[in-house]
Simulated assay, not measured.
Amino acid sequence: MSATKTKIQTIIDQNPVAVFSKSYCPYCRQAKELLSKSGAKFYAIELDQVDDGSALQSALGELTGQNTVPNIFIAQKHIGGNSDLQAKKGDLPTLLKDAGAV
């Protein structure tokens, strides 16, 4: 596995909720806001603010089939993007509790 994919997997494995984001993205902001309001402890990495951000985004695309941000994982499972997270709003408290993120 490439170092980039290893880094992504480590972030996913070490955090109950991982959000691959961009600081200027309104959808990323909405997703992080919903997680915050839900009381989630989450790890967000801003791909536009790290040197290997574009490589990480490419590798995420290969791993998940999703090339856009936010790219969200809860309990090591790929949730999808903001619209996927918003659609799970009703299940979010249970998902977060099961992941140990609240």
Rank of each mutant, 00 (worst) to 15 (best):
Gln49Lys: 15
Phe20Arg: 14
Ile74Ser: 09
Gly90Thr: 12
Leu47Tyr: 05
Leu63Lys: 14
Ile72Gly: 12
Gly65Arg: 05
Cys25Asn: 06
Ala75Val: 01
Gly65Phe: 07
Cys25Arg: 05
Cys28Thr: 05
Lys32Trp: 03
Gln57Tyr: 11
Ala55Gly: 03
Gly90Lys: 14
Gly61Asp: 10
Thr94Asn: 13
Leu85Tyr: 05
Asp48His: 05
Gln86Trp: 00
Thr68Tyr: 09
Ser83Trp: 00
Gly61Phe: 10
Thr68Arg: 09
Pro70Glu: 10
Thr94Glu: 14
Phe42Ile: 01
Tyr43Asp: 06
Gly53Phe: 12
Ala87Tyr: 03
Lys37Thr: 07
Lys89Pro: 00
Phe20Leu: 12
Ala55Ile: 03
Ile79Met: 11
Thr64Pro: 08
Phe42Gly: 03
Cys28Lys: 01
Thr94Trp: 00
Cys28Met: 01
Lys41His: 12
Val69Phe: 12
Ser36Val: 00
Asn67His: 14
Ile72Thr: 13
Gln66Ile: 05
Ser23Ala: 14
Cys25Asp: 10
Gly81Ile: 05
Lys41Arg: 14
Ser21His: 12
Ser21Leu: 12
Leu60Asp: 09
Cys25Thr: 04
Cys28Asp: 01
Gln30Pro: 00
Phe20Gly: 13
Ile45Lys: 09
Ile72His: 12
Gly39Ile: 02
Lys89Val: 06
Leu85Ser: 06
Ser36Ile: 00
Ser23Met: 08
Val69Leu: 11
Ser21Lys: 09
Asn71Thr: 07
Ala87Leu: 02
Ser21Arg: 07
Lys22Tyr: 02
Leu92Met: 08
Leu56Ile: 15
Asn82Gln: 08
Leu47Cys: 06
Ile79Val: 15
Leu95Glu: 10
Ala55Arg: 13
Pro26Asn: 08
Ala31Asn: 02
Leu63Glu: 15
Glu46Asn: 11
Asp51Cys: 02
Gly65His: 07
Leu63Tyr: 10
Cys28Ala: 11
Lys89Gln: 14
Ala75Met: 01
Leu34His: 00
Gly90Cys: 03
Ala75Pro: 02
Asn67Gln: 14
Gln49Ile: 00
Gly80Val: 04
Ile72Ala: 11
Val69Trp: 10
Lys37Ile: 00
Gln66Gly: 11
Asn71Phe: 08
Gly53His: 12
Asp84Leu: 04
Phe42Arg: 04
Ala75Phe: 01
Tyr27Ala: 04
Asn71Leu: 06
Glu62Lys: 13
Ala59Arg: 08
Val69His: 13
Glu46Gly: 03
Ile74Phe: 07
Gln49Glu: 15
Gly81Glu: 07
Ala55Cys: 00
Asp51His: 14
Ser23Asn: 09
Leu47Ile: 06
Glu62Pro: 02
Leu95His: 09
Ser38Asp: 03
Phe20Glu: 14
Gln57Thr: 11
Lys88Ala: 15
Val19Tyr: 13
Tyr43Trp: 06
Phe20Met: 12
Pro70Asp: 09
Leu34Cys: 01
Lys77Cys: 05
Lys37Cys: 01
His78Met: 05
Ser23Glu: 04
Ser58Ala: 15
Gln86Gly: 00
Glu46Val: 02
Lys89Ser: 15
Lys32Met: 13
Asn82Ala: 09
Ser21Asn: 13
Leu56Thr: 13
Glu46His: 11
His78Asp: 07
Asp84Glu: 13
Leu56Gln: 13
Gln76Arg: 15
Gly61Leu: 10
Thr68His: 07
Ala31Glu: 02
Thr64Gly: 08
Ala44Lys: 03
Leu35Asn: 08
Leu56Val: 15
His78Pro: 06
Pro26Arg: 04
Leu35Tyr: 08
Cys28Trp: 00
Lys41Ala: 12
Ser54Gln: 15
Thr64Cys: 07
Cys25Met: 05
